[in-house]
Design a protein around this nucleic acid. Sequence first.
DNA 1: AATGAATGAGAGTTCATTCAT
DNA 2: CATGAATGAACTCTCATTCAT
Lengths: 197, 197, 197, 197
Amino acid sequence: MARTVDPAKHEARRLQIIDAALTWFATDGYERATTAAICRTAGIGSGTFFHYFPTKSAVLVAILEYGTHETREWFAAQQGRTDAREVLLEYVGHSADEYADERVAGFIHAVVAVMGEPDIAAALAADVDAVRNCLTPWVEMAQQRGEIRDDLTPVRATRWLMVLLDGFLDRIISEPDFTVATEKATLLDAVDRLLAP
Amino acid sequence: MARTVDPAKHEARRLQIIDAALTWFATDGYERATTAAICRTAGIGSGTFFHYFPTKSAVLVAILEYGTHETREWFAAQQGRTDAREVLLEYVGHSADEYADERVAGFIHAVVAVMGEPDIAAALAADVDAVRNCLTPWVEMAQQRGEIRDDLTPVRATRWLMVLLDGFLDRIISEPDFTVATEKATLLDAVDRLLAP
Amino acid sequence: MARTVDPAKHEARRLQIIDAALTWFATDGYERATTAAICRTAGIGSGTFFHYFPTKSAVLVAILEYGTHETREWFAAQQGRTDAREVLLEYVGHSADEYADERVAGFIHAVVAVMGEPDIAAALAADVDAVRNCLTPWVEMAQQRGEIRDDLTPVRATRWLMVLLDGFLDRIISEPDFTVATEKATLLDAVDRLLAP
Amino acid sequence: MARTVDPAKHEARRLQIIDAALTWFATDGYERATTAAICRTAGIGSGTFFHYFPTKSAVLVAILEYGTHETREWFAAQQGRTDAREVLLEYVGHSADEYADERVAGFIHAVVAVMGEPDIAAALAADVDAVRNCLTPWVEMAQQRGEIRDDLTPVRATRWLMVLLDGFLDRIISEPDFTVATEKATLLDAVDRLLAP
DNA sequence: AATGAATGAGAGTTCATTCAT
DNA sequence: CATGAATGAACTCTCATTCAT
C-alpha cells in the first residue's frame, strides 16, 4: 500500500483548521465557537477535525503552543545583542503590533476566560512562563548595564512589563477609540517611565 | 388581602443566588457555570432561579450593575475633595484591594470574555464607561492643579490608568506569586511614574 | 367565626376564572394557555385558581359542562312544540349564531384537539352525547310527521345534522371570508336539502 | 472523496421519523407528542431527530406539505376529464377513504388545533388553499355543464363541499359508530343533495 | 379564603465526539 | 485518509401544582 500521508498536505490541513479555529475563537469565544463552524470554515468534514486534533480544546492548545513557540523564536533571534533595554522596548512594540490584528487580540482575550479545562490552563500557564522566562534575562542584563531601575528583582520587573502589555490589550479590546496606532508611542513611553532608574 | 411577600426575605434570596452565581462564574467562567450548579449552591430549586432572574445572563448583568453602582457610590463619596491626584491614587488602591478577593478577581476576568450575549456586552460596556466617566473629572482636576502630566487629554490619561489596573488584575489572576499584598505599593508607584508631569 | 364563604361571591369568582380561561383557550389552545395567564386575566393569584379548580383541565371540563347544560336548557325550552322540523332548523340557526362569537368558535376548535386527558375526553363525549340525545327525539318526531326523510334512522339523521354543524364551524374558523352572517342562510338551506324527504 | 450519504437510506430514515411523528401527533396531539417519544418510536437517538428536522414543528409542516402535494397530484391525474361532477364526487370519496385510516383522521384533527406556531399556521393555510384551489375549477366546470347548482359562486360552492368533508371527519373521530364504511354512501348522497341544481 | 414564592419534572434543542463506510 | 450521519449527555427554561403565611 502506498504511503497515504503526505506530510506537507497534512500540515497544510492542520493549519487550515488552526486558522479557522482562531477566527471563531476570536469572534465568539471558546465555548460558543462550535466545531461545526470551524469545520465549515476550514472546508473539512466534521470527522476530519478529529483526525487532526483529539478534542476541541486541543486546537486551542495548539494555537497557544504556536504562540509560545513564536515568542521563543523572537527572542532567539535577538541572541547576542547587548542593548538589553532596547530589546525590551522592541519586544513591547512587537507585541503591540500583533495586537493590532483583531484576530490575535480577540483570541488572547477569549482564551484567557477558559478556566476549568486543565489542558488549556496548563498551556496558558506555559505560555505565560515562556514569555516571562524569555524576558527576564534581558531585564537582568539591562539592570546590570544600569539602563533600567534595579530596585525590583528581575522577575518582578518582568511581571510589571507584562502588566503594561496585558492592560494595553484589555483597552484595545474594550474601547474602539483606543488603538495600537494611536497609543503605541504612549505604551513605549509608559514602559520607559515604569522602568526608569 | 394577605401579605405574602417579605421583601427582606426576597432580597436575601436574590443575594443568595447572586452570591452562588458569582462563585461559579469566578471559578468556571460564564458558559461552564450551569444554572443547576448555581441553584444547588444557593440552596434553591431550579424553578426558583427563574423567579428571580429571567435568564442566566440576567444574573450576570445584575452583578455587573451592582459593581457599576458601587463604583459610582465610591466616587460620590469623594465629592468636594480637591486633592485630585490623591483621589486617583486612592481609587487605584481601592480597586487593588478588591482584587485581593479571589472571587472578585476571578469574576471580572471570567466575564470580560463573554461576547455574544448582547445584554452582557451592554452591561459590560456600561461598567467600563462608568469607571471612565467617574475617573475623568478627577484626572482633569489633577491636571489643572499641575499634579499630573497634561500632555494627554483627560480621557486618554484615564484610559492609561485603566491599563495599569486591568494589567494588574491579569497578573494577579495568572501568577500566584503576584499578589495584591506584595505588589500594591508598586502599583501605586507605577501610577505615579505614569502620570508624573 | 363568621361564615367565610359568600356563595354569590364564590360563584362570581368561578365565572371570572371560567371566562378568562375560555378566552385563553380560544386564542392559544389548551396546552399553550397557561394557568398564569388565566389568573392574570381573571385578576386572581395563582394559588386561588386551585381553590376553585383542582387542575387546569377541570376548568375546561367545567366550560364543556356549562355548554352541555345550555344545550339541555335550550331543548327543554322547546318542550311541547310539535313543529319538529322547525325546531331542528332553529337549533341549527341558534348554534350558528353562537359560532359568530369568536371566543366560542375558537374554544370549541381548540378543545377538540385535546386528546390524552381522560377527563376532558369524557366531558367532550358527554357533550356530544347530550347534543345527539337532545336532537334525536325531534328528528324522530319530524320523521313521523313526514317533514323530513325517513330512510335514515333517527340517530343517523341526527349525526348528519351534526356533520353540517361541525363542518360549518371548521370553515368559519379556517377562512376569514366565510362568516356566519353571510353563510347562515345557506346552512339552513343545506339542512333542508340534506333532510328533505 | 468517500461517498458517505446514501440518499435512499436518508429518505428512509426521514420517513421513519415522519411516520413516528404522525402516529404520536394523531394519538396525543401536537403539544403532548414529545420529540423523545417520536425518537423512541422511530428507533433513533434524540440528536438524530434534529439532523432531519430543525424543529419539532418542522416535522408537522413536512407532513402537511406531503398532504398538500398528494392533493395536487390527485387533481393533476384528473387532468383532461370533462365529467366535472363525477370528479368532485370521486374526490369526496377519495378523501373519505383516507379518513378510514385512523392515523390520518387523528392527525388532521389534532393538527387543525395548533395555533401559535406561525410556520404551522402557514402550512395549514397553504393546505386549505390548495384543496380549495384544486376543487374550484371543477366546480366551475360542473356549473357550466349544468351538472350542479349555479346560484353559489364557484368558491362558495367549493367551501360548502369542504363543510361536508370536514364535518364528516369530525363525526368519524367523535363517534365510533360512525364509520367511513357505513356512511360513505350517505356522504356522496349528501354532496349530491347539497349541489343539486 | 387568598396569596404568590417555591418547586422539580420534563420539555425542546445543542454539540463534541464516534465510527461505519 | 476523509466523511458526515448518528449519538446522548447536558443545557436552559417552562409551568402546573403545592403550601406556609
